[in-house]
Amino acid sequence: MDPESVPCTIKLPVPLQVGDVKTDQARPGVYVIDVTFPKSQDVDVSEISFKNYYTAFLTVRIQQQRRPSDPRGNPPAWRTCIKSQRLMPNPHMEDGSQDYVSLRKSQMICGTDHVTAIRLILRQPSPVWLNFTLEDLQINPSGKQSPQKGFSWLLSQLPPKEQLQSLHKGLPDPNKVSSEVQQMWALTEVMKANQSTATIGRFDSGCATQVANERILSRT
């Protein structure tokens, strides 16, 4: 998974079908995939990307966090942000059937801030294909700080040249000091990077601190 994508729960595709699913010979022409975010957090969606698998048309609907102006009581309304996007030029033909697709914010017909749930409606009118779905679905959030912005901030933090020239003459050699301090920093990081997650399974240490804390409390 892309490190930038939001952690989310992607439910299994649910077919929409008239009649009994098991006995009916006709295959479903519509699947619905629901996406939810953990701990009911909301996400500013900037991009939805996936790999197509024989889906001809895609509709995306979103549920947004309730605004203060909204009427109370009713659950937040579903809004359509992508309407019948054509993924395969001809549903009966292979073209576009396994393309990588990325739908950006500019292509969406409504705002996509504070999204709490996403519903993808997949349609395939052609009976030629046994099955259809979307793979590698990823929801990418907006509001990522661009790395260049970070760099320019770092550069602005560096002391200006004039300040460096007006320094005290009797300073220790900054290059030597810096090199030693940096090595000390690196060594500490080596130690931190090697910290083990293994434990020896002490059960009593938590209790011991608690007892100690209680003792301190009772003293004060």
């Binding site: 560096l158 002391p159 460096l164 320094l167 290059n175 000091v177 940096q182």
Partner: peptide
């Protein structure tokens, strides 16, 4: 420096550069 935020190492490293340290030492003196 935080292992989960790579950019934080740049920030921390820049603090320990000769220029920044020189300014810090000057101020201390």
């Amino acid at each position: 420096s935080d292992i989960s935020v790579p950019a934080s190492y740049l920030e921390a490293g820049s603090k320990l550069g000769p220029d920044c340290l020189a300014v810090v030492m000057d101020r201390a003196l």
